[in-house]
Structure formats: structure tokens, C-alpha cells
Design a protein around this nucleic acid. Structure first.
Length: 865
DNA sequence: CGGCTGGAAGCAGTT
DNA sequence: CGAACTGCTTCCAGC
């Protein structure tokens, strides 16, 4: 394992350049630039690397880069700044085991600097792999991703059968083809999986794979796989993500265009990013990933001693939060790597555009992906003008791409940043987030997949951030800061792979709804960066579910007097003549307080619309709004997610939405309308969020925060106890179908869900406060942690897990938080394996759990308040 | 020829 | 404990 370290601002060592990381060079030029960019810039270089792919080993072994933060180093995470280090770990797999490319490379392990971000916990969850590149499992993921990205790495998994697993996924990121893993990877895998490679990117998966696979004996779920795989090669690994060979594909053409364009702009904003990028680049190789991904056993063998250190086992996770954060962060960057290698190239064919710059990220640390951000702030508003279709069958790594997500009326989703009058292009980030009731966060089982080809008009490139693939798309002033998202598909990761990840507590079964999450980071004159986020309506990604489960896209009423009697039109999918619409009210503890069936007008029932009569509320004398839920049921196990509905007291003005003629209009800008038009899924009412957020956030959040509240509009009170049922209880509610609904979920992007805006200091770190911490700590963005340096200290070991805990803020309150984290909640990814095990259960059961969690949460909040 | 789809077979986990 | 279901993945085939 080689560690490469350099000061943040410093330029990247030549080595990197050579190797694959042309990117690096880029970075040199712009320390600040995000890794991605680097990669991009390096474009040309990249190609070079690509060629290598097969030979990765040859190159040097860069394969893994580890970031792990060693506890020692980063305890705080802060340390980093000193000099970021990039660690590169070569596995035995590689022809050459370790080559120390890095110049310096001290062994220092972590790139602390980057770390800044580190969240203690971040790893916790999905990133575990990320965490330690070298370290076990997690590393894989990284790897894979990297690979997927196109890195061309081909790892040899041969050494360890286990490894093989990784290979597969990575392989062809974009489908490029070639997986060619020349050898190695393929060899191992030989397997069928390769096919997958075709598919794309999986890299993410890979990562996961790595970790998981290694660990898991078999894939739980995939029965089939076994066969195919086993036969082939090692049992599990069937596909190894690693296929990174993918890169090769990339190599081809597309190259850098993207990158270059970006370059220009870069300013410096990304100091950390630069570093990270560099790291990523290095890492990209997947090395890091590899490490993680690789089963310990194998690793050990292959890995060198150093590697061992890297491995983060549960215990290992003890790493300081910062570390974790770093890890993740780096990982995130990893993508760049991939890109560098492949990604960049692959990415989109060059476009006329030159997006020059990505300045956006001023601060080194961008908000973690699980942070809740507002969709608008001041003059800026990030909006999804055209919503994606509510169904999109995601593809497995073993399949070819299933294309880009489309819009309901044909075409593709469209996103626009309004209120931005500057001349500088910005970067629109896209990742796949959850769609359950809990806070929006990256979806562990789905990843965005970059689509390329002649039918794609929008350039993009993938970046890996905290185990989550992020697609970056240029937002150009000449296009009115509007982007047509025709380059984004959705990749499904095998449940078994993800569930085995260290720290992953969510279960994949029946967890098939996602949302496209868009983010943009705007640099402000003040030197701060304003981050906005918009999430799409939920998208059902499973083939079967999409065909059978009822799904409510819109409802014409959000509120109604307690007396009921009003008619509401529901639009969606899979409605049947015998569909039932059930209204329920749950107590905070999850108990049903009330349940009644609404009258359905069967005559007007269509597969895409249902006309119902709102049933009277159980108490006609309510003085405050009462939030309840309802769902459409096609049978015992075929229920839609919970939809929110509010009963108002007779005195309260009712907010009615005009019925739309068409039930399935292209969902364009639904959000906008304050209330007219069918409302996009209610999913989670903002209220919920509100209630929660306020408490925690308030302290931290500045004015921005207010944004969150707006949504309810009329219902500011949400927080107030009045709506109690709604407020707290709701959170808990899980959608029937969705296992995890418990936590608050952010509403659809547009939905008013409250978000907290985050302003980053140019200096770098986010201030802890400004952000809500997502339940899962999963991603610790680099920035996220930074601040925590010290605080995290204690928790770091387990860091990952906390649900809602704000990273640091709570240090004091940690105890409560901690409990939280421990709670089985899905969202939370508790670091402790044990817990995780218990936690994973069928959705329904989970509900209960969630409830519990919710209870805890509530307590915690109240305490805070 | 390769990518994108729609369908569905084959399994294993749940009920 | 076994049968019936479900849901997840992988394969196929057509466009």
C-alpha cells in the first residue's frame, strides 16, 4: 500500500500524473478544483490511462487509494489540513503489489486534509467500504465504483476469488464495452457477470460488493446468481465490480471534453476538492476500493501489511470521525478517479459546451449528500420543471442499461436554476435518493447511472461521493441554467451486496422507490457557497412493483374539513376497480388511532385515477389541523405509500387544489404552483420535517433555515403540538409498502419540505449547525466533519451510525443521539454490526422499529429544545 | 452490432 | 413444517 500525501494546496506529484491521474496534474494547476474536474481536464491524459486499464497493474498499482483516516491522524478529522495524504494501496492483485508511486507517500494514512469533512460516522453506513480503502470490505466498493466509472482498472481478482466479485460491476461503466478486463478480472469472473460489466457503472455496487461480498458467503438473495456465478468462478464474486476495465471503454472517445471545459473555470474554490480529487484520482484506480471490497482474507493475502491497517473492521471503524469522513469524502472523489480514467472520458461525448467551470464548490467541503438542503434561497430556486415518470425499471449490473429516466409525457426530466444571473456556468449534481418517509438521503440500493450515446444531448460525468455516484451536469447561462436530464439512468445494486456492507442497516427488499436528487452549489460574493437541492417525485424502480403496486402521484386535495364529504381525485398508477383507499391516523407510538375506508367512485375508476370521497374524521370538533395518512390498497400486500392528508377544523380555511383535467399531465413544475394543480405526492409533508428540523437545526441554521417552514404555508403550526398526530406520528408512519418510512422524509423536491440551506464558508467547512444531519451518517462529506474534529472524538469509533444526529452539535447531547443511532432504524446505519443484523427485517417489522426510533427522536428533540 | 426494453424463468426468503 | 406467495435477479428475445 502506498500512501501519498500532499498538502492541500500543494500540487500533485508527478507520479500521479503519470499514472492515471492525469487528473492530478490538473489538480495541480488548480488545487482547488474538484477532483472531477481534474479528471476532466486531464482528459487527454485520461485517455492514456485508459489504455492502461488492462494494465493497471502495470501502471503502478495505483489501484487503491486508501484513505482511511487513521484514527491517529485524524482523530479530529481536522488534522488533515496539515497535509492531505493520499494513500494508495496496491493489492496483491495487482501485478505489482505496491508500488509506491507517490512521491511522498508517507505512510500517513489518511488524507486528513480532506478529511476535514470527515464525519465521524459517515462511514457508518454505506461507505464503510469507503472508509478504508484498504480496509476491508468497504474498499471494495470504492473500487468497484471506481472501476465502474470506467476506470479501467482491471484488477486481478484472481488471487482471491473473492475479489472477483468486485470485478464485475465495475466493468463497464457506461456500457462501454469493454470490460475487458483483460484479464484478470475477467478471468476470474469470467463469469457471466462480465456481462454486467457492460452495464455500467455499478461501480458503486462494486464497492458494496466488495465489502459485502467478501463477507457474505453467498448472496442472500440472489439465488440465481449463484448458479451462474459459481459456475464461473468464485462463488460470489460473480461479477466483480472490478471490471473496471470499463475504463477502457471510456478511453475511447469521450474523453475529456468535459473535463477540459470544466477546467477553465475552476477557480480555486475547491481547495479541498482538489485534494480530494487528487486522491480520488489516485484512488480511482479503485485501489482503495479494492481494498475494501476485497474480502479480508483475500486482502490479507494480497495486501501488504499496511493494508491491514487500513482495513476497517467494525472495530476498526473506530477511526476518528474525521477519518471516516475523509474516507467517504475521498471516495466521493473517487469518482473522479474513475472518471479520470474512464469516467471522464466516457462521460459524455464532448459537447459543444464547455462548461468551464465548476467553481461552484467554493468550499472544499460540500454538504454531505444526506444533508437536507432547501430548494430555494433568496433569488435562487432550483426547480424540477419536468418530473420524471413515476416508474423506471432500474437495471442490474448484470443487465445492459435500461436507458435514461424519462418524463411522464415523453422526453426527459428538466431541471432549472432560477434567479441565477451570473455568467458563470454551474454544475448540477444528480444522485439517487430515497423516497421513504425519512429524511432524504442517498439510496443505498440504487445509483445514478450515466447514459451516453447519440440520443443523449446533455454532457455529464460521474463522480463518486461517499459511496454514492453523483452525476455532474453543466448548468449553462446560455441555456438559462436549464438542463435536460437525458443522461441519467438508474442502476440497481443487489440487495445482498448492500446489506452486507458494514454499517448498512437498511434492507433492500421492497425498498424500491427512489427520487432523483439535484443539487447546485452557488458561490456567493461573500465567499460562501449556497447549496440548493431539489428532489423529484418518487420513482418506482422495480419491475414487478411498477406493475402491481398502486402509486399515487397526485391528489387534488390536501386538506378538508373534519366533516369530510369532499371529493378528491387521485392520479397515479395501477389503480384497480377494487382498489380501496384507506385513511389512517397513527399515534406517535405507531398505533393506529383511527382507520377508515373512503368511498371510491368505481365508475370513474381508471388505472391512473381514482375519485374518492373524503371520509369524515373521527372527531368533528378538532380545533387544530390533524394530519392523517391514506393509501391505496390493491390487496393485502399491495399498498401505495402513505399519502398525507390534513383535516382542518371548521374554522380553518381550506386549501384546495384545483383538479386537473389530466391526471397524468407531464409533471411539469408542479411545485411551483402554490397549491393549484394536483399536488405532487404528498409524501412527507414538510411539516414533519419542520417539526424535527427546527429543533435540531435551529441552533445551527441561520436564516436560511426558515425556508424549510414555508411549505405548509398555512400550516406552520406543524411544529406545534397541535398537529401532533401529524407531526410526530407521521414520521413514524411508514408507508405500507415502504419499509422505511419512518423517519422524516423529505418531500418531493418540490414539495415544500423544509430544507435547511447550507452555507459553506469559503474557508471550508460547513458549519455544523447549518445542516441537518441525516439520519444516516453515511456520507460524511469532507466538509461535514471538519468542524467536528474534536467533538467527534468519542463517537468516531462508531461514528457512522447516528441517525439524526448532527454530527457534532450533539456532542453534548450525544447520549440521546447515540441511542438514536443505535436504534435499528433503517436510516441510521449503526456502526455496530450487531445492531445492524437485528435491524434488517422485513419492512413491516421495520415499521415498528422505526416507530421506536421515532420515539427516541422525539425525545431527543424535545430535550434539545 | 449494441443498446434498450419487455417479459418472464428460476430461486430463495416470507407468510 | 410445508405450501403458497413474493420479491429479487438473471436471462432471453425482439426492436
Amino acid at each position: 500500500i502506498v500512501y501519498i500525501c500532499f498538502p492541500i494546496g500543494s500540487s500533485i506529484p508527478p507520479l500521479f500524473h503519470r499514472s492515471h491521474t492525469p487528473n492530478v496534474s490538473l489538480s495541480q494547476g488548480n488545487p482547488c478544483m474538484p477532483s472531477q474536474y481534474h479528471s476532466l481536464q486531464s482528459g487527454p491524459t485520461i485517455s492514456v490511462s485508459i489504455s492502461q486499464p488492462p494494465s493497471y497493474g502495470a501502471h503502478n498499482n495505483m489501484r487503491t487509494v486508501g484513505y482511511y483516516s487513521s484514527p491517529s491522524i485524524r482523530p479530529n478529522g481536522a488534522p488533515a489540513l496539515e497535509s492531505p495524504r493520499i494513500e494508495i494501496t496496491a493489492y496483491g492483485q495487482f501485478p505489482e503489489d505496491k508500488v509506491e508511486e507517490s512521491n511522498n507517500l508517507t505512510v500517513a494514512k489518511r488524507v486528513n486534509s480532506i478529511v476535514t469533512l470527515t464525519l465521524p460516522n459517515a462511514d457508518g453506513y454505506r461507505d464503510p467500504s469507503c472508509l478504508s480503502p484498504a480496509s476491508s470490505v468497504s474498499s471494495r466498493s470504492c473500487h468497484s465504483e471506481a472501476s465502474s466509472y470506467e476506470s479501467g482498472f482491471s484488477y486481478n481478482y484472481e488471487n482471491s476469488p473473492q475479489n472477483s466479485p468486485w470485478q464485475s460491476p465495475c466493468v463497464s461503466p457506461s456500457g462501454s464495452s469493454s470490460l475487458a478486463l483483460p484479464g484478470d478480472a475477467c478471468a476470474n469472473a469470467g463469469s457471466p457477470r462480465h456481462s454486467p460489466s457492460t452495464s455500467p457503472s455499478t461501480s458503486v455496487t462494486d464497492d458494496s460488493w466488495m465489502g459485502q461480498r467478501g463477507s457474505r458467503p453467498n448472496s442472500p438473495s440472489g439465488g440465481k446468481r449463484k448458479y451462474s456465478f459459481n459456475g464461473t468462478t468464485t462463488s460470489k464474486p460473480p461479477y466483480s465490480p472490478n471490471h473496471s476495465p470499463g475504463p477502457s471503454p471510456h478511453t475511447s472517445p469521450r474523453i475529456c471534453v468535459t473535463g477540459e471545459s470544466w477546467m477553465p473555470n475552476n477557480t480555486n474554490q475547491y481547495t479541498n476538492s482538489a485534494i480530494v480529487a487528487a486522491i480520488n484520482a489516485l484512488t480511482t484506480d479503485g485501489v482503495a476500493d479494492l481494498g475494501e471490497g476485497i474480502p479480508l482474507k483475500s486482502r490479507k493475502t494480497s495486501l501488504e501489511p499496511g493494508a491491514v491497517c487500513l482495513k476497517v473492521e467494525p472495530g476498526g471503524e473506530e477511526l476518528s470521525p474525521g477519518e471516516l469522513g475523509q474516507d467517504e469524502y475521498p471516495f466521493s472523489r473517487m469518482p473522479f478517479k474513475k472518471e479520470n480514467y474512464c469516467g471522464g472520458f466516457l462521460d459524455v461525448p464532448q459537447h459543444p459546451y464547455s462548461w468551464s467551470k465548476p467553481k461552484q464548490y467554493v468550499s472544499p467541503s460540500l454538504p454531505a449528500l444526506d444533508w437536507q438542503l432547501p430548494s430555494s434561497s433568496g433569488p435562487y430556486s432550483l426547480q424540477i420543471e419536468v418530473q420524471p415518470k413515476s416508474h423506471h425499471r432500474a437495471h442490474y449490473e448484470t443487465e445492459g442499461s435500461r436507458g435514461a429516466v424519462k418524463a411522464l409525457a415523453g422526453g426527459h426530466p428538466v431541471v432549472q436554476l432560477q434567479g441565477y444571473m451570473e455568467s458563470e456556468p454551474l454544475t448540477l449534481q444528480l444522485f439517487i435518493g430515497t423516497a421513504d418517509d425519512r429524511l432524504l438521503r442517498p439510496h443505498a440500493f440504487y445509483q445514478v447511472h450515466r447514459i451516453t450515446g447519440k440520443t443523449v444531448s446533455t454532457p455529464s460525468h460521474e463522480v463518486l461521493q461517499s459511496n454514492t455516484k453523483v452525476l455532474e451536469i453543466p448548468l449553462l447561462p446560455e441555456n438559462k441554467m436549464r438542463a435536460i436530464i437525458d443522461c441519467a439512468g438508474i442502476l440497481k445494486l443487489r440487495n445482498s451486496d448492500i446489506e452486507l456492507r458494514k454499517g448498512e442497516t437498511d434492507i433492500g427488499r421492497k425498498n424500491t422507490r427512489v427520487r432523483m436528487v439535484f443539487r447546485v452549489h452557488i458561490n456567493q460574493p461573500t465567499g460562501r457557497t449556497l447549496s440548493l437541492q431539489a428532489a423529484s417525485n418518487p420513482i418506482e424502480c422495480s419491475q414487478r412493483s411498477a406493475q402491481e403496486l398502486p402509486l399515487v402521484d397526485k391528489q387534488t386535495l390536501e386538506t378538508c374539513p373534519a366533516a369530510g364529504g369532499e371529493r378528491m381525485l387521485l392520479s397515479g398508477h395501477n389503480f384497480q376497480h377494487d382498489s380501496k383507499v384507506v385513511f389512517v391516523e397513527k399515534a406517535q407510538d405507531g398505533h393506529h388511532l383511527w382507520e377508515t375506508e373512503a368511498k371510491v367512485d368505481k365508475d370513474s375508476c381508471k388505472s391512473t385515477s381514482l375519485l374518492i370521497e373524503i371520509p369524515p374524521y373521527r372527531n368533528q370538533r378538532i380545533s387544530n389541523p390533524v394530519q392523517v395518512n391514506f393509501y391505496v390498497c390493491n390487496g393485502k400486500r399491495k399498498r401505495s405509500q402513505y399519502q398525507h392528508f390534513t383535516y382542518m377544523s371548521a374554522n380553518v380555511p381550506i386549501i384546495k387544489m384545483e383538479p386537473n383535467d389530466d391526471y397524468d399531465p407531464p409533471q411539469v413544475c408542479p411545485q411551483r404552483g402554490p397549491g393549484l394543480a394536483l399536488r405532487p405526492k404528498p409524501y412527507y409533508t414538510p411539516q414533519v420535517m419542520t417539526s424535527i428540523i427546527p429543533t435540531e437545526l435551529r441552533p445551527c441554521v441561520g436564516g436560511t433555515y426558515s425556508a424549510c417552514q414555508r411549505r405548509l404555508g398555512g400550516k406552520p403550526s406543524s411544529l406545534s403540538s397541535s398537529s401532533s398526530p401529524s407531526t410526530s406520528p407521521k414520521r413514524h408512519d411508514l408507508s405500507p409498502t415502504t419499509p422505511f418510512s419512518k423517519c422524516l422524509s423529505a418531500g418531493p423536491s418540490q414539495s415544500p419540505i423544509p430544507h435547511v440551506s447550507i452555507i459553506q464558508e469559503s474557508s471550508g467547512c460547513y458549519q455544523p449547525q447549518s445542516v441537518l444531519y441525516p439520519p444516516s451518517s453515511a456520507s460524511s462529506s469532507p466538509g461535514s466533519q471538519p468542524s467536528t474534529p474534536d467533538t467527534s472524538g468519542p463517537e468516531p469509533p462508531f461514528s457512522p451510525t447516528h441517525c439524526l444526529t448532527p454530527p457534532q452539535p450533539i456532542s453534548g447531547s450525544s447520549s440521546p443521539v447515540t441511542q438514536f443511532s443505535k436504534v435499528p432504524e433503517r436510516g441510521s446505519r449503526s456502526s455496530s454490526p450487531t445492531l445492524a443484523i437485528n435491524i434488517k427485517q422485513e419492512p413491516e417489522e421495520l415499521d415498528q422499529m422505526y416507530l421506536d426510533d421515532g420515539a427516541l427522536l422525539i425525545i431527543h428533540l424535545s430535550t434539545l429544545s
